[in-house]
Lab assay of single mutants.
Amino acid sequence: MQRVNMIMAESPGLITICLLGYLLSAECTVFLDHENANKILNRPKRYNSGKLEEFVQGNLERECMEEKCSFEEAREVFENTERTTEFWKQYVDGDQCESNPCLNGGSCKDDINSYECWCPFGFEGKNCELDVTCNIKNGRCEQFCKNSADNKVVCSCTEGYRLAENQKSCEPAVPFPCGRVSVSQTSKLTRAETVFPDVDYVNSTEAETILDNITQSTQSFNDFTRVVGGEDAKPGQFPWQVVLNGKVDAFCGGSIVNEKWIVTAAHCVETGVKITVVAGEHNIEETEHTEQKRNVIRIIPHHNYNAAINKYNHDIALLELDEPLVLNSYVTPICIADKEYTNIFLKFGSGYVSGWGRVFHKGRSALVLQYLRVPLVDRATCLRSTKFTIYNNMFCAGFHEGGRDSCQGDSGGPHVTEVEGTSFLTGIISWGEECAMKGKYGIYTKVSRYVNWIKEKTKLT
């Protein structure tokens, strides 16, 4: 034993070699072989497995989906700052455009905790909710729209109204504003409101030439003092309507412009014939205590009207009353817009006519005020429907199939267009061939041609 100890002390290297040989010859039971080890760690190889990531292109799944990435790591994937920024906006807080917040056709661009709407022409605001041009839906104005110097929408209202708090709607500024039905039992019968379409306001006024200088022999019209197929109006439903009495009662109609003036057809009036105007009328054979009678003290036909040349060209006249009318729910003026808007309103496509005229061709006159909704007829169809001249200051309205029309005794009465609950004068009943005849239409004086003249002559002093 002493000898062994001496050998170990003198030859430590020998001992180490012996131990190493023993270990190498022993069977290893701690580690699995290569094949079995792979069965336990069965993990798919990654895209760049075996390579240094710093030297390969980034992978979106590896960089940002398996674990949260930084902007720089995302930049490695896209290799483009702009594309990385677009991805980053949604990656950080989701897609803010998912709810489609942009209105009126706006395009949404996502941002971090926010979004941006790219608005089409005519709109602005956070969600493109603000109209900035009158060309689109009248700028959301209830009545009139004008573009300011910086191309912003400025709404306005006709006389007797003021802008509401929203700067879009119009509200009454006087007790009985024009064009409004205020009798409670008839307010439910107000005709369907007309909503502004998209309009090209630059070209809204037709490029028409008034044929002022045409000389033409007097034409022989049949029954051209021209509501057939209409309905009984309720008291106060058309408070701007008046009836004219002269040699015979209810020979023509008219509309209240203001307390002192009536507008009617020029062919209705004769110099030297006494005319009485009755406002607030409903049943011409009954006294309903809503009527107001006034005498006409002055007749002003349009300066281009000449019955000797043509009885229905420039067929418009103004009547001055001896005493002002007292405005109330049964006696209310009709609204008159400017030339541009009167023309736009007419193009809405349908209007209402009213009167006490004959209820059928050569038949009896109506006792109760009649009204009828009539569609506008395109000019080409209008011209083809008659052998008589249709001037540019006239328009056609009615039904091709016949059966409904204005008729004798309705002449001078109103053709009105309702705009968001307020009625505007767009025409004056003038003439036609018979009444409600198939293929024939009622012919009306186009008020847009005469609004400046009306307003100039009827100013209240």
Rank of each mutant, 00 (worst) to 15 (best):
Q2G: 15
R3M: 11
M6N: 10
S11E: 04
P12W: 06
P12I: 15
I15C: 05
C18I: 14
Y22E: 02
A26S: 09
T29P: 01
H34Y: 11
H34P: 15
A37D: 04
N38Q: 15
L41V: 14
L41F: 11
R43M: 13
R43A: 15
P44T: 15
R46Y: 13
R46P: 15
R46E: 14
Y47A: 15
Y47E: 08
N48T: 14
L52R: 13
E53N: 07
F55H: 15
V56P: 15
G58L: 07
G58N: 12
L60C: 04
L60A: 14
E61Q: 10
E61G: 10
R62A: 11
R62Y: 06
M65G: 04
E66G: 08
K68A: 13
K68Q: 15
C69G: 04
S70I: 05
F71C: 04
E73K: 06
R75T: 14
R75M: 06
V77I: 06
F78S: 13
F78M: 15
T81K: 14
E82D: 15
R83V: 10
T84M: 04
T85Y: 06
T85M: 08
K89G: 12
K89N: 10
Q90M: 10
D93R: 15
D93W: 05
D95C: 04
Q96G: 13
S99A: 15
S99R: 14
N100D: 10
N100M: 07
P101N: 05
L103P: 03
L103D: 12
L103K: 09
N104G: 04
G105R: 07
G105F: 08
G106R: 02
S107W: 05
C108M: 02
C108R: 02
D111I: 15
I112E: 15
N113S: 06
S114N: 08
Y115T: 04
C117A: 02
F121K: 13
F121T: 15
G122A: 06
F123N: 04
F123I: 07
E124F: 13
E124M: 14
N127P: 02
N127C: 04
D131Q: 08
T133Y: 14
T133V: 15
C134N: 03
Q143Y: 02
F144T: 00
F144Q: 02
F144E: 00
F144R: 00
K146N: 08
N147M: 11
A149E: 11
A149W: 06
D150L: 10
N151L: 10
K152D: 13
V153P: 15
C157T: 00
T158F: 03
T158V: 11
E159Y: 09
Y161M: 04
R162L: 10
A164D: 07
E165C: 04
N166A: 03
Q167N: 07
K168R: 06
S169A: 14
E171L: 12
E171H: 07
E171V: 07
E171N: 09
P172Q: 08
P172R: 06
A173P: 00
V174T: 09
V174W: 05
P175C: 03
P175K: 12
G179L: 00
G179V: 00
R180H: 08
R180C: 03
V181L: 08
V181S: 11
S182A: 12
V183R: 09
V183Y: 10
S184A: 13
Q185D: 13
Q185L: 08
T186V: 09
K188Y: 13
A192Q: 08
F196G: 12
F196L: 12
F196Y: 14
D198H: 12
V199Y: 13
V202Y: 09
A207W: 13
L211Q: 12
D212L: 07
N213G: 11
T218Y: 09
T218Q: 10
T218W: 09
N222A: 11
F224Y: 11
R226N: 11
R226H: 12
V228A: 11
V228T: 12
G229Y: 12
A233M: 08
A233N: 07
K234W: 13
P235D: 04
G236E: 03
F238S: 03
F238P: 03
P239Q: 01
Q241I: 12
L244W: 01
N245M: 04
N245V: 04
N245F: 02
K247C: 03
A250G: 14
A250T: 07
F251L: 09
C252S: 01
S255K: 01
I256C: 01
I256L: 04
V257R: 01
E259F: 03
E259A: 10
W261H: 01
T264P: 00
A265W: 01
A266V: 02
H267K: 05
C268G: 00
V269E: 01
T271C: 03
V273L: 04
I275M: 08
I275P: 05
I275F: 04
I275A: 03
T276F: 04
V277D: 00
E281L: 13
H282R: 07
N283E: 06
E285I: 10
E285G: 07
E286R: 07
E286H: 09
E288H: 07
H289T: 12
T290D: 04
T290N: 10
K293N: 07
K293L: 14
K293P: 04
V296L: 02
I297M: 07
I299E: 03
P301Q: 12
H302M: 02
H302S: 03
Y305V: 01
Y305E: 02
A307M: 11
A308D: 11
N310G: 07
N310I: 02
D315P: 01
I316N: 00
A317P: 01
E320A: 02
L321W: 00
L321M: 08
E323H: 06
P324M: 04
P324D: 05
L325H: 00
L327A: 03
Y330D: 04
Y330C: 03
Y330H: 12
T332W: 02
I334Q: 00
I334H: 00
A337W: 01
A337S: 03
K339D: 06
Y341I: 12
Y341D: 10
I344R: 11
I344G: 07
K347T: 13
F348I: 08
F348S: 13
F348N: 15
G349N: 06
G349Y: 12
S350R: 13
G351N: 08
Y352A: 06
V353I: 15
V353W: 03
W356D: 02
W356M: 10
V359R: 12
F360A: 06
S365A: 15
A366D: 14
A366S: 04
V368C: 06
Q370M: 05
L376P: 05
L376M: 13
D378S: 11
R379L: 14
A380M: 08
A380W: 12
T381N: 10
T381D: 14
L383C: 10
F388Q: 15
F388G: 06
C396P: 02
A397G: 07
G398M: 05
G402H: 05
S406Q: 13
S406E: 15
C407I: 06
Q408T: 12
G409Y: 12
G409L: 06
G409A: 08
D410Y: 07
S411P: 08
S411C: 07
G412S: 08
P414W: 04
H415V: 03
T417E: 01
E418R: 09
E418G: 05
E418W: 06
V419P: 01
E420N: 09
E420Q: 09
G421I: 03
G421T: 06
T422Q: 03
T426A: 02
G427R: 00
I428M: 06
S430Y: 03
E433D: 14
E433M: 06
G439Q: 12
G439E: 08
G439W: 04
G439T: 10
Y444I: 08
K446Y: 02
K446L: 03
V447G: 02
V447K: 00
R449Q: 15
N452T: 13
W453I: 02
W453F: 05
I454E: 00
K455D: 03
E456Q: 12
K459A: 09
K459D: 15
K459Y: 13
